[in-house]
Amino acid sequence: MIQLFNYIDRVSPIHRLTGASKLACMLCWVLAAMVTFDTRYLIALTVFALALFRVSRIKVSEVKVILIFSLVFLFMNNLLIYLFSPEHGVSLYGSRTVLLTFTNRYSITAQQLLYHANVVLKYTATIPVVILFVSTTQPSEFAASLNKIGVSYKISYSVSLALRYIPDVVDEYHSISLAQQARGVELSGKENLIKRLKGATAILMPLILSSMDRIEVVSNAMELRCFGKNPKRTWYRERKFTPLDYGTIVLGFALIAISLGLQAVNGGRYWNPFL
């Protein structure tokens, strides 16, 4: 079965952290990596992220699906950048070192390569931490932690419910699709794309309708138990902060500080080795 986002139960220091501190740190981490184009820093973040991944004892095979998903995205992103602005790196770094020439427009320059390396590193520095956060935080704590950093609890709860229902919906998709295939809907590669898309709608319609039923039931159940009565609510699963949690948050801010510090040193977002 396909599982995109799910909690993976292990014993590790990262699992012991509260959801809120992990969330705060993850957001800082992502922000730090977004801001900087300092290749050295991005490499350091990547190494650090992979090390944390190791500490969490989560296996790569367990998060295979989301990894493949991000790799595809990463590849598309790079391809599009190169297709639309093959000289972007040149204009950024203000010099041009040609390594290979295909046509007038498309050649490979060291500057462009460095730029692409930065983009790739941004992914590798952030994706492991995002996956880490999602797979080491229980969905119920996830809602509590969103709420703790200031998101309204109603929104927090709907987000965590939505994440929780993904596996159910995938199961349902699977059984609907089998029943529709039995009626003659062709989804395999034998048919052309348009036929297959048409086939997919024959599955999506019932899927949406039955998901709506599910939403109605759960929202009634929630209202009948006073969800939304008060502007605030407490959380059964909420945990107290430990020193490690404070440390995690400090780490997050430190990462941003380094990122900003490097900007001052480099005189901008880009670290330019071509000077």
Partner: peptide, 28 residues
């Protein structure tokens, strides 16, 4: 409610029972 599975909100039995109390802002 009729749909026994659909009406569970909490991820564990304890959280599900606590749901109404959480909404009433009861201390942990």
């Amino acid at each position: 409610l009729q749909d026994l599975d659909g009406q569970f909100i909490g991820l564990t039995v304890a959280e599900d029972i606590a749901f109404a109390l959480e909404n009433a802002c009861m201390g942990q």
